[in-house]
Design a protein around this nucleic acid. Structure first.
Length: 601
RNA sequence: GGGGGUGUAGCUCAAUUGGUUAGAGCAUCGGAUUGUCGAUCCGAAGGUUGCGGGUUCGAGCCCCGUCACCCUCGCCA
């Protein structure tokens, strides 16, 4: 079937191997035919080696070699030959040598591939996903997979060295309400009952702490039946951690150490510690998001108290308790109407009512004229006329503006204004190229609110219902729940949420108060979480933990902008696998056995 | 569910205001070629313009519907 087994890979031969007889196995990467003289580049995941078929050494092979097609799997026996100086290929590590073939075995032929297995050519992602096994043959994808493997190894190495135990938890669990939609698996033996695929190992890892296992970690798959994004898949992988007898800083220290280790070991990048810490409130106020990109400045400023109320857009919003806030686009005063319109279209798309633009210019008129602030600074734009001198002075100061800058203002309810400006800030980051590729700016966001109000007015947990409130709020939990801060923390890198965690509740009474605040009846919580509440009564230690999105870690470390490129077989945005066609149908017999009937379809 | 973008040869793209037989590069196939490494040269083949309707003398282009992929809002405790 196949006789010539490799003695070396396609990436390891060097000048020092000259004269050695070797066998290489691999895929035909390219063929260059000169009639009597034929070159083949043989590729495997370790590299590429040039094989020579010459009439001098292997006249009988030349014709056979001339028929080799791309992506055929072949085995070649030959002698390593140091190349003449003028034929060395400096671009590849094996470029100093070539293998002078004496024997050729065609192991497997290949049809013409639907796209070329090279880096040079752009291929639609759809095509790559349909033939993922070919896409994964490309060196960049192999680099991604390799890097991911190294990351996992570095994480395990670090966690193990810190004394953490690698422990598994069930994927098939009991459905628990709240949070992400679960995938359900019908039970064959119990009609009408279902397992749920775990959306995270949360409860089990807490129970490990009750068991006294003290330091747990796992690289675990999580399943969530929610809509997809560039950085979200139905199933994804987390580095999951839980520790006993710890406070917030202990958990943050461990994960910081782990991340720094990974970045150094895999990326060769020294990340300074400790990571900056910013509160949720500050992050929302200055960056308009709970996952700030700190690679560039452009903080949001507030003009509410100094905004001209005669300008109705501002006046009516302030009247209603809203805010006027803005961003300074340095050097953008020369932007055309078309360019600023684009910004307005964008902010309207994310919920803004409008965008007020003001240009800071050198005045044409003398100081003292309408709107002219000083000899060298004047506001221009349709709203400029509403700015009396003190107000103009205020906005210039708060915006830190100078002539040539463009000021972008949004007036709205506080949360809306913040999120709109937060989005606009990122748009400007990309349009203006404000960040240098290859920079990594980590930060912690802390002091999240305990609760949030949902669309229907109901109170929900911001993090999850097992998160402990900060001690100073224990007495006012019921009185002012919306003011309660949680012992929760998120790790953010370059504006992407890498992970989050919290110190947990370890007392039954506190846990029950939280459940009650969330509107869950005692009967309901007993049914769903009884085992957890029981566990808390048998000696639960204080504990806390965190989970890091491994796919996002790999994506960011590699400088990519979607996690599909670090996942071997991802789903499309519409949650299907283009290669296998999953999800697929099953037979009536299977459905019957599972006591399931399909309706409407 | 909402908004935006894309869809033309195997792949990546082009095609003036709606107007001749829809072009190019790469890949493929045939031929030439003894030092290439993105080989080169000569030649050939390759099309339901995502799909379905409509407007028009005439549609890749305009209109309606639909499908797929990507980005995004909602959603993701």
């Amino acid at each position: 079937m196949w006789k010539l087994k490799r003695t070396q890979t396609c990436g390891e031969l060097r000048a020092e191997h000259a004269g050695k007889s070797v066998v290489l196995n691999g895929w035909v990467d390219a063929r260059r035919n000169f009639g009597n003289l034929i070159f083949i580049d043989l590729r495997d995941r370790y590299g590429r080696t040039q094989v020579l078929f010459s009439p001098d050494r292997a006249a009988a092979l030349v014709e056979q070699a001339s028929k080799l097609g791309k992506e055929w799997v072949v085995a070649v026996r030959g002698v390593v030959r140091k190349r003449d100086a003028d034929t060395v290929n400096a671009k590849i590590p094996t470029g100093e040598i070539e293998v002078d073939a004496v024997d050729l075995e065609i192991v497997n032929e290949a049809k013409t591939t639907p796209f070329e297995v090279t880096e040079r050519i752009n291929v639609a992602e759809e095509m790559r996903l349909q033939h993922r096994y070919l896409d994964l043959r490309r060196p960049t994808m192999q680099r991604n997979i390799l890097t991911r493997s190294k990351i996992v190894h570095a994480m395990r190495e670090h966690m193990d060295a810190q004394g953490f135990l690698d422990i598994e938890t069930p994927y098939m669990v009991k459905f628990t309400p709240g949070g992400a939609r679960n995938f359900l698996c019908p039970s064959r033996l119990y009609p009408g009952r279902f397992f749920a695929l775990a959306e995270s190992p949360q409860i089990f890892k807490q129970l490990f702490m009750v068991s006294g296992l003290d330091k747990y970690y796992q690289i675990a798959r999580c399943f969530r039946d929610e809509d997809l994004r560039a950085d979200r898949q139905l199933e994804f992988t987390q580095l999951d951690i839980e520790m006993s007898f710890v406070q917030r800083e202990d958990v943050m220290n461990v994960i910081e150490g782990c991340v720094v280790h990974v970045w150094k070991k895999v990326g060769g990048v020294e990340v300074p510690r400790p990571f900056p810490v910013i509160t949720y409130e500050e992050s929302e106020r200055l960056y308009g998001t709970d996952k700030p990109d700190l690679r560039f400045g452009m903080k949001i400023w507030d003009l509410t108290d100094a905004a001209p109320r005669e300008f109705k857009v501002f006046g009516s919003v302030i009247e209603a308790g809203g805010v006027v806030r803005g961003l300074t686009a340095t050097g953008c005063a020369s932007w055309s109407r078309k360019q600023t319109d684009e910004l307005e279209t964008y902010v309207k798309g994310i919920g803004a009512k409008g965008l007020v633009t003001l240009k800071v210019e050198q005045p044409q008129a003398p100081p003292g004229s309408l709107g002219v602030l000083s000899a060298d600074c004047v506001l221009a734009g349709s709203a400029a006329k509403f700015f009396a001198p003190p107000q103009a002075k205020a906005i210039i100061e708060r915006a830190g503006a100078k002539p040539g800058d463009l000021l972008l203002l949004v007036a709205d309810a506080e949360e809306k204004a913040a999120s709109v400006l937060g989005g606009l800030r990122l748009l400007l980051r990309d349009k203006l190229g404000l960040v240098k590729p290859g920079t990594f700016q980590f930060c912690w966001v802390v002091d999240f609110p305990m609760f949030e109000v949902g669309e229907d007015g109901s109170v929900g947990a911001k993090h999850h219902p097992f998160t402990s409130p900060k001690d100073e709020f224990l007495d006012v939990l019921e009185k002012e729940p919306m003011k309660v801060k949680a012992k929760a923390y998120d790790l953010v890198l370059n504006g992407v949420e890498l992970g989050g965690g919290s110190i947990r509740i370890h007392r039954r009474d506190v846990q029950q108060r939280i459940f009650k605040l969330l509107g869950l009846t005692e009967e309901y919580t007993r049914d769903r979480f009884g085992f957890l509440l029981d566990a808390f009564e048998y000696g639960a230690p204080p504990h806390g933990g965190i989970a890091l999105g491994l796919d996002r870690v790999a994506m960011l470390l590699l400088g990519l902008d979607n996690i599909r490129d670090v996942i071997t077989f991802p789903k499309t945005q519409s949650t299907v696998c283009l290669m296998t066609g999953a999800p697929g149908t099953v037979t009536e017999k299977q459905l019957k056995e599972l006591h399931v009937r399909v309706v409407d379809g």
